[in-house]
Write a protein that binds this DNA or RNA. Structure first.
Ligand SMILES: [Mn+2]
Ligand SMILES: [Mn+2]
Ligand SMILES: [Zn+2]
Ligand SMILES: [Zn+2]
Lengths: 136, 136
DNA sequence: ACACAATTTAGAACCATTATAAACTATTAA
DNA sequence: TTAATAGTTTATAATGGTTCTAAATTGTGT
């Protein structure tokens, strides 16, 4: 079974039609053993340098949001003026190198267990994310 | 010694001229026992509802950035499409209630000690921030 | 092939933020 | 006191990431 057909299955299973554009985006995002972080613009450049047939920026926005909603991507709270996404959807944390302006994964095993003692009535914890800023 | 003169001293000590605008902004931000979180627009509304003489949005941006640079405010990585600031400059963490879209302080004592086992050569830790998302 | 809904796309709109540059003001030196 | 100067405020424009719009295209079930 080739790559494309795997992504077609994945898309169909998610209720998303397997269009040429979405399959290409899957190939760029998921056809690698390494996960990575990206902004929409970086992804757009990556995709459009890889293929001669361009994908519009609007489609890239649409698709990234769709994939995020389906849980195939995570958005990382970094509070820059642009959104950052992560193909690593496992429970993990981040270093942010403020000099290089680069995100680096911190596996869950790189961080000790995080205890939250405070409770808010009627609310439950959805996620716990640690951002460790690094400087020279 | 009255409030204004305290802020005048604070501003002078920071190399910032004590203008009417900056003193007012200090009063709104720091003249309270409770710390709080705000976006620039929320702060602008707060200030301009409290005083008849309005302060321009540009000045509020300038001043918030100056205060942040001086360490009188913290910016909170929330990755919304707007910046959030905190008058609580102590080392602490946050709950983010995704339903109410509200930030809640987590004192350092509300969170167990955070161990970071991974090291990056030549880099040192500048800050460690935990964001705990809450849902109903 | 056909009908229909989903998707793509270029371009416009949106909106938080930053830049500009002219008027104003705090400070310091005559 | 004034005068000179640098710092500040402000209205307004520009920027840039993101979302919206609506028309053209495409995927899917019949
Ligand atoms: Mn988004
Ligand atoms: Mn900012
Ligand atoms: Zn990551
Ligand atoms: Zn806080």
């Amino acid at each position: 079974m080739n790559l494309a057909s795997i992504y077609i299955k994945k898309l169909r299973n998610s209720g998303l039609r397997p269009t040429k554009q979405r399959i290409k985006i899957c190939e760029v995002l998921f056809n690698t053993d390494k996960t990575f972080h990206f902004s929409i613009n970086e992804l757009s450049t990556l995709i459009n340098s890889k293929y001669s047939q361009k994908i519009s920026l609007a489609t890239i926005y649409n698709t990234v949001h769709a994939f995020k909603d389906k849980g195939y991507l995570k958005q990382i709270p970094l509070n820059a003026n642009q959104a950052y996404f992560d193909t690593n959807i496992s429970d993990h944390h981040h270093f942010y190198d403020v000099n290089e302006k680069k995100l680096i994964d911190l596996d869950n095993s790189d961080v000790g267990p995080i205890k939250i003692y405070k409770k808010i009535n009627g609310k439950k914890i959805k996620s716990v994310e640690v951002l460790v800023k690094l400087e020279d």
